[in-house]
Amino acid sequence: METNYMINRSIYYWSGVYRSNLQKRMAYRELRTVIAINILNFDLLNDTKRFHTSFHLYEDKDFFKLTNMMEFHFVEMPKLINEWKQGKLDPWNDLLARWLLLLGIVDSRTDTFYEDIYNELEAIAMKDDVLKSAFKNWDYLSATQEERLAYEARLKHVLDEEAAIREAELREKEALERGLQKGIQQGMKQGIEQGIEQGQLEKAKEIAQKMLKKGLDIESVMELTGLSSDAIEILKRNID
């Protein structure tokens, strides 16, 4: 039944997705292209030995394409495995073959595990980080419950260590930022205080100069302004 009605099913599901694109107040030209991709674990098309076929709508006599809105792809996994066995696939350079072979490592119908495919893809994964990540997830999903629990325990340990390192980095950063802020505040405070002191000193010198010009003696100027005798002597010489 799967073989007989798969094409009908694909068209049916495609039409539902295509119709759902049209919402209220939308024009038909706003409908988006829908591409149906069917990955099959059985042979469907007897007219070709190719594992990947694609279909569009074409005119019957002149064979020009009617539209790009409708597109169907069929990937027949048994044909893929046959091409692999015959050495016709190059997963090292063919990205599509690489990922389809990953899906075909296990044949659930015959309970077959293709170890040769696994080994080659594992070698490719050493140079393909995305495939390597997929392999890790694949291994996890394929593991027994005990293996998954052990994996999760190891993963938790690694994550805890990484989190502790990151926490230490954040604390160090925050401490540096607090120290910098404190230093800025302390510097501003000292600058203000020094500014006030400098302003007071300049004011005292200005008053002392006026006193000296009016003939007050050095002792009196020292008592009234708080300046040292040396400072007042310098001011007096400048006046003279």
Rank of each mutant, 00 (worst) to 15 (best):
M1A: 11
N4K: 04
Y5G: 01
Y5S: 03
N8L: 15
R9M: 02
I11Y: 09
Y12H: 00
G16N: 15
N21C: 00
R25N: 12
R29K: 14
E30G: 12
L31D: 06
R32K: 15
T33Y: 02
V34D: 09
I35L: 01
N38F: 12
L40H: 00
N41F: 11
N41K: 08
N41I: 01
D47W: 10
D47Q: 12
D47E: 09
K49G: 07
F51T: 05
F51R: 15
F55K: 09
Y58W: 13
E59R: 15
K61F: 09
K61N: 07
K61I: 11
D62K: 02
F63D: 05
K65T: 01
M69W: 08
F72E: 04
H73F: 04
M77L: 00
K79H: 01
K79N: 00
K85T: 02
P91A: 06
W92S: 11
L95N: 14
L95A: 09
A97W: 08
L100T: 04
L103S: 05
V106P: 03
S108W: 07
Y114H: 07
I117E: 02
I117Q: 12
N119R: 15
N119P: 00
N119H: 06
L121P: 15
L121N: 03
E122R: 06
A123I: 14
I124G: 10
M126K: 14
K127F: 08
L131K: 08
K132H: 10
F135Y: 05
K136V: 06
W138V: 00
T144C: 12
Q145G: 02
E146N: 02
E147N: 03
A153K: 13
L155Y: 04
L155G: 06
K156L: 12
D160C: 09
E161H: 15
A163D: 09
A163Y: 03
A164V: 01
A168E: 08
A168N: 13
E169C: 05
E172G: 14
E172D: 13
E177Q: 09
R178S: 03
R178G: 02
G179T: 12
G179Q: 09
Q181V: 13
Q181R: 14
G183H: 10
G187E: 06
G187I: 03
G191W: 08
I192K: 14
I192W: 13
Q194D: 06
G195D: 12
Q198N: 07
K203H: 14
K205I: 10
E206N: 14
I207R: 12
A208G: 03
Q209P: 05
M211C: 12
I218D: 10
E219P: 05
E223T: 06
L224S: 07
T225A: 04
G226E: 15
G226T: 13
S228W: 07
S228H: 05
D230A: 05
D230I: 08
A231Q: 15
I234Y: 07
L235R: 10
K236C: 01
I239E: 01
D240E: 12
